[in-house]
Every structure is written in C-alpha cells, then in structure tokens.
Amino acid sequence: MNELLSVLGQAVAFGTPILLAALGEVVAERAGVVNLGVEGMMALGALAAFATAQTTGNLLLGLLMGVLVGALAAAIHALVAVTLRANQFVSGLALTALGLGVSGLLGQHFVGSPLLEPLPGAEFRIGAVLLAIGVWGVLYLTQTGLILRSVGENPGAVDVMGISVVRVRWLAVLFGGAMAGLAGSYLSLSYRPAWVDGTTAGLGWIAVALTIFVGWHPVRAILGAFFFGLLYHLAFRLQGRVPSEFLLMLPYLLVVVVLSLAALRRQQGAAPEALGLPYKRGER
C-alpha cells in the first residue's frame, strides 16, 4: 500500500509540469489553434522565472515573469498563426527552436547559481489539479467556454454571431503560453531550482502528446498526466526487467493508438473540428 502510494506520488510529481503545460494546450487547441511551441515557451518561461527570482530574490515575482514571458512567446505564435494565418504546425516548430535558442543564449549567465530557497512543490501539484478542474468548469459550464469551444468547432458560426474569432483564438493561445510558462517556472523555481541549458528535456513535447492522448479534455488530462508520469517512473523502477526505452516511447505510441481508435469509432478523438485551420472570414 505504501509502495503504491509512493509510486503514485512520483507519478504525480512528474505529471505536474506536463499537466500544467497540457492544460494550456488543451485550451488553445479547443479554440482551434495547435501550438507545437510548448517546449520553447516552457524553456523561456523557466529562464525568465529563474532569472527574475535570482536577481530580485522574489520567487513570486519570478513566477509571474515566467507566466508573462510564456504568454509573450505565445503572442508570436498568435500573431503568425492566427492573425497572419500561417501554418500553425510550422509556426509552432519555429517557436520551439526560437525559444530553446534564445533561452540557451541568454541563460548562460545563470548557469551554476542555484536558488537556495525554492518554491514548495506541493502547492504546484495541488494547484495543477485545481486548475484542471477550473479549466474544465470554464470550458463546459460557462458562456465563455461555449464560445471558445465553438471557435474550435465552427468558427464561421461564431463569427456570424458577431464574436471575433481572432480575438478568442488570441486569448486562448496566450493562455496556453502562460500555462507553458507556469510549467517552466515550476521546473526552474521548484522541481529543479536551477538553470541549465536544456532543462525542459522534452517535457513540452510530452505535454503536446498528452493533450491529444486525453482527447482535449482537461479533467482526463489529470489522469493522463499521472499515467505518463507512472510510465516514466516505471521505466526506472523496472530497469533490468523491461528496457526503459520501451516504456519511455510508450506515451508517443499510445497517442497514435488513441488517435487511431478514436478515428475507428469515427469520433475524430473528440478533436475540435477546425483544429489547425486558420480562420478567414468568408471562407468555409
């Protein structure tokens, strides 16, 4: 029993940053915008949070900066992919490269000087779960959520109602960036309170995978994040019995399986209808 609890505890700890980032991605994708820049936004958020906390000594200010810079990075994506209607996937890839590049360049001065009093992790873990429930509440119980989901399903209809599709999508993408920034801040202020180049180590991509894996559903994302955390944890627990690589590749394989199964049942994996499609008034 104790053993089980400890395994679950680890799964939750690992799952927290990917849950945070995935929640943001769920919101953005629910509004119809794929953002593959999560890894880059997370890295920028992690650096901004750490640099601020390190120079001012104020952890909460650091957290705020991490969130802000994440959102700022997302604004690039919103500008290119929403306003200028460029290919969302390519724009996201570019944002990841830019984010990793800029954070690696500017982070050099912060290497080798850790934060002595990091933020506690428990609040983040609980906060992430509460945020997931909150996002679910907003998405499914409020007018705002209805509009946001409609923008992802049928932007034309929303437009006809006189609501700006571009504005809704911008806000959703900014929220996605803020959450990625928050996930990055969790890494650099709490989970591994230091800056090293490459600190995100692919977690952003796992968050993207998670978003699809849970069928764009924020509450299922909680379970999904902990499930991925469990796999990652088991990869090391079962070492010597099962090659770690198989457990580590499993999340990515499962995404493909889930997408295929959903497609088989003709549900499209509950993917928003207009996912990945730029919206232009008068088209469609």
Binding site: Q10, F14, H233, F236
Partner: peptide, 9 residues
C-alpha cells in the same frame, strides 16, 4: 530526476 525518484521510492 526520475531515476533519483525511483531510487528514493
């Protein structure tokens, strides 16, 4: 981090 957590567990 996860390897260390596994060892802790």
């Amino acid at each position: 981090a996860e390897a260390a957590n596994a060892l802790i567990a």
